[in-house]
């Protein structure tokens, strides 16, 4: 490999490492944020009102 070719390969390797580091940093930050929300969140309660409920028919004809 010529000296110029070696320099270009080194440049590309550095750029690739930079991208990898950035991706890892972003994933780490996302993980920290998710963990914070997970620990701090209370989970909530399922709906208590509304939705579909079994229909109650009257026992006998009113009229």
């Amino acid at each position: 490999m010529s000296p110029g070719g070696a320099a270009a390969a080194g440049h590309y390797a550095l750029a690739a490492m930079k991208i990898v580091r950035r991706v890892l940093a972003a994933l780490m930050m996302a993980g920290i944020a998710a963990a914070g929300i997970r620990v701090k969140g209370r989970g909530g309660t399922p709906p208590q009102h509304g939705g579909w409920r079994p229909l109650e028919l009257p026992d006998r004809r009113a009229s």
Binding site: Q48, G51, P54
Partner: peptide, 21 residues
């Protein structure tokens, strides 16, 4: 409708948008 239910069909009514307590 009572006969229909007795034959195994479950009738349901919509009581509003589901909400928490």
């Amino acid at each position: 409708l009572r006969h229909v239910e007795s034959f195994g069909v479950r009738l349901q009514e919509f009581t509003g948008v589901p909400q928490g307590a």
